[in-house]
C-alpha cells in the first residue's frame, strides 16, 4: 500500500545516532489545564538549528523515567524554542509535568509525516480537533494563518470534554476575534458558566462556513472521533481523499526499527503519523490491527 510521506529531512538534533537524545533546557512552562501543560525547550549549548513541519513529533526523554512520542505544538519551520503540549497520563508524562524552568530533557526528532499544508493552498482549510488533538493541529493553523493569502476560508472546529479541558483558551479567543477565520468550540459536558455549545464535534461540521467541494480537512483526536468526523465531513461533501488524520500507536524508536507502531503495512513513526484518510481507513476498520 502506498502511503503519503512528506520528506522530513535528517533526524534532527541527534545527528548520526537516531537513538541518542540531545539535551534541551526548559525555557518556559505553562499550565494549560488540570492535566495538560506546555514546555518551551531550548537546545543546551546554544541554538541547534531545530526545524519541523506541522504535524511532526519528537521523542521526549525524562531523565531516568523514559521516553514518549509527543507532537510539536508550536510554530513550524526554523525555531529557537521547540514547543510541546503534553497531557500527563503516564509515568513519563507525569515526570515531564514536574519539570521546572531550567531543567533538562532529552529530545530526538523531529520525526514523521506532516499535514500537507502546501497541497492545501488555494483551498478552504478545515481543522477538526478532539481533546489533546488540538496540539498537533496548532502548527498547521499557525502556518495557514501566517500565509493567510494562500488559503481560502480557515475553519477550526474543536471539541473538548468539559469547559475546564479547553486548551489554549486565550489563543482561541484571539483566533475567534479574527475576521478571516471561523472558530467553533463544543464541549461534551457543560458546567456552570458555560454558554457555548454542548455535544460532539461532528455536529459542528454541517454548520461551519466553508465550501466542502473545495476544502481540505485535517482531523486529529481519538480514533473513534476521527472516524465519525470523517464520516460527517464526507456527508457534507468533503471527499476522503482530501481528508488527513493523525494516528497514535506505541512507539519506542521513532525510526522504523522497533516494530511497535505498525498498522498493517505501515509504520506510523515513518509513514505517519499524518495519513490521507482513504489510505488508512481500511486498516482502521479492522479490529485490533
Amino acid at each position: 500500500m502506498a502511503t503519503t510521506t512528506e520528506d522530513a529531512g535528517p533526524p534532527g538534533p541527534a545527528g548520526g545516532d537516531p537513538m541518542r537524545p540531545a539535551p534541551f533546557r526548559v525555557a518556559r512552562r505553562v499550565v494549560e489545564t488540570h492535566d495538560v501543560f506546555t514546555l518551551w525547550l531550548e537546545p543546551v549549548g546554544g541554538p541547534g538549528g531545530f526545524s519541523s513541519q506541522p504535524g511532526q513529533f519528537d521523542m521526549l526523554y525524562a531523565f531516568g523515567a523514559g521516553e514518549v512520542p509527543v507532537s510539536l505544538s508550536g510554530p513550524p519551520g526554523p525555531v529557537k524554542q521547540v514547543v510541546h503540549t503534553i497531557r500527563a497520563v503516564g509515568p513519563v508524562t507525569q515526570s515531564l509535568q514536574r519539570l521546572k524552568r531550567g531543567d533538562v530533557v532529552g529530545l530526538r526528532g523531529p520525526f514523521g509525516s506532516a499535514w500537507p499544508v502546501s497541497l492545501a493552498e488555494g483551498s478552504d482549510v478545515v481543522l477538526v480537533a478532539g481533546g489533546i488533538g488540538l496540539a498537533p493541529l496548532r502548527p498547521a493553523l499557525y502556518h495557514v494563518l501566517s500565509q493567510r493569502e494562500r488559503y481560502g476560508r480557515i475553519v477550526l472546529l474543536y471539541g473538548a470534554r468539559t469547559p475546564r479541558d479547553i486548551l489554549f483558551a486565550r489563543e482561541i479567543e484571539t483566533w475567534r476575534g479574527r475576521f478571516d477565520a471561523d472558530v467553533e468550540v463544543v464541549v461534551d459536558r457543560a458546567a456552570p458558566g458555560w454558554h457555548g455549545l454542548v455535544g460532539v464535534v461532528t455536529t459542528l461540521v454541517p454548520r461551519a462556513h466553508f465550501d466542502p467541494h473545495n476544502a481540505v480537512a485535517f482531523v486529529c483526536g481519538p480514533e473513534l472521533m476521527m472516524t465519525f468526523t470523517v464520516r460527517a465531513l464526507a456527508h457534507h461533501g468533503v471527499v476522503p481523499a482530501r481528508t488527513w488524520v493523525s494516528l497514535e500507536r506505541n512507539m519506542k524508536c521513532a525510526v522504523g526499527f522497533c516494530g511497535h507502531c505498525q498498522l498493517g503495512p505501515t509504520f506510523i513513526c515513518r509513514d505517519g503519523p499524518v495519513y490521507r484518510w482513504d489510505r488508512v481507513a481500511p486498516l482502521l476498520g479492522v479490529r485490533e490491527l
Binding site: G64, G66, E67, K252, F257, G259
Partner: peptide, 14 residues
C-alpha cells in the same frame, strides 16, 4: 524478527 523495546532506568541517587 527485529522488534525491540527500550528500558530506561536510573540509579537511586538520580
Amino acid at each position: 524478527c527485529f522488534c525491540t523495546t527500550v528500558e530506561d532506568t536510573g540509579d537511586l541517587a538520580g
